[in-house]
Amino acid sequence: MRKTAPWLLVTLLATAAAPPEAPQTVDIAPPYHDAPEMAARPATPRGTLHSFIMLSSESRIYPGIRQLDSDATRRRDSWGNRIAAPADQQSAPAPWRREVFVYVPATYRPGSAAPLLVVQDGRDYAARVAAALDTLIAAHRVPAMIAVMIQSGGGDAQGSQRGLEYDTMSGRYAEFVEHEVLPRAAALYGLRFTSDPDGRAAMGGSSGAAAALSMAWYHPEWYHKVLSYSGTFVNQASPVDPATPRGAWEYHASLIPGSPAKPIRIWMEVGEQDLHWQDPEQSWHNWPLANDRMAAALAAKHYDMHYVRAAGAGHVDPNVVAQTLPGALEWLWRDYPR
């Protein structure tokens, strides 16, 4: 009978039984530098980056959004936040056209069920995610996962298609991804995605991060991992839902404290000078404060959470992303498969 090397046995046992880490907050400071994993290496196998187009006319879930007219987009409250216009100041639904990027690792075997990373605002992250995954997968630091990186339907904040998709407090966006985006990607490129929620992660920056958390919060049967940069955990949702009157601010104000802990692992970051960083709490629109509150609420419920506060950094600071993305991905996937 062949014996297992002692060091290998210890490694296998540690991987199989790795407990959740205690919630952790880490402060980082400039100068920020690209992580070495972000640089292409000649000997590293490179995955393939595909793209395709989706139209609103093809969607049952998001057939179009009522766009605000020019006067309505100038309406703001006393804190300077945009206010959604009444229905009589809105135009007819507008069509959207979105691009979806699909990263397939070099080692993917067609038809096999692969781990999945879904990224919001896909165009902003496609190249960086692909570069990080090439290096991490080749070094066996993360599993050979497929990344589906989805551009929003357009616009920003209240009254826009992006705002409707990302800032709405519901599982609707996750359902759009599950039932309309992933099947299209699978059919086009001969892919299969794991159904194991431990093998699925959602990622985004700003409102895309709020969307990533909503994907896991409202559909934990699909996603157990979240990666958030400058999460818009503030009062941004439109139209207002009486169940969550302050939009994603309710995550840390009421939903997380008032609910049993969900099987979500979350890595999150905020910049010291992120959006509205000097605004008072009553604005419900201070990004650093909202993320600090998120970290505290998650820690109180003993979530598997890693929180990074970046000194001197702004909103979804690209230098911070380039420094932290490989480590964030590795932390999220550190014990997969269990």
Rank of each mutant, 00 (worst) to 15 (best):
K3N: 02
P6E: 00
L9F: 05
T15Q: 13
A16S: 02
A17K: 06
T25I: 14
I28F: 00
I28P: 02
P30I: 12
R46I: 04
M54T: 03
S56K: 11
Y62R: 02
I65Y: 03
L68H: 07
R76Y: 08
D77T: 08
D77M: 09
N81Y: 15
Q90V: 08
A92P: 08
P95H: 03
P95T: 01
W96R: 02
R98H: 02
R98A: 00
E99A: 14
S112W: 11
V119R: 05
Q120W: 02
Y125M: 05
A127W: 05
A132E: 01
A139R: 15
A139Y: 11
R141Y: 08
M145P: 04
A147L: 07
I150L: 04
S152E: 02
A157R: 15
Q161M: 11
R162H: 01
L164A: 09
D167C: 15
D167H: 13
T168V: 11
Y173M: 12
E175L: 13
E178G: 09
R184S: 06
A187H: 01
L191M: 05
T194M: 08
D196L: 12
M203D: 01
G204T: 07
G208K: 03
A210L: 14
L213G: 10
A216C: 14
Y218Q: 08
P220S: 12
H224A: 14
G231P: 03
T232I: 14
N235M: 14
N235Y: 10
A237R: 07
A248P: 02
Y251L: 06
H252M: 10
A261W: 11
P263T: 11
I264R: 14
R265Q: 07
R265C: 06
W267D: 00
E269Q: 07
V270D: 01
G271Q: 06
L275D: 13
L275R: 13
D279Q: 15
Q282W: 05
L289N: 11
Y303M: 08
R309F: 09
G312T: 08
G312N: 03
V316C: 09
D317L: 03
L325E: 03
L329C: 07
P337F: 04
R338W: 10
R338P: 06
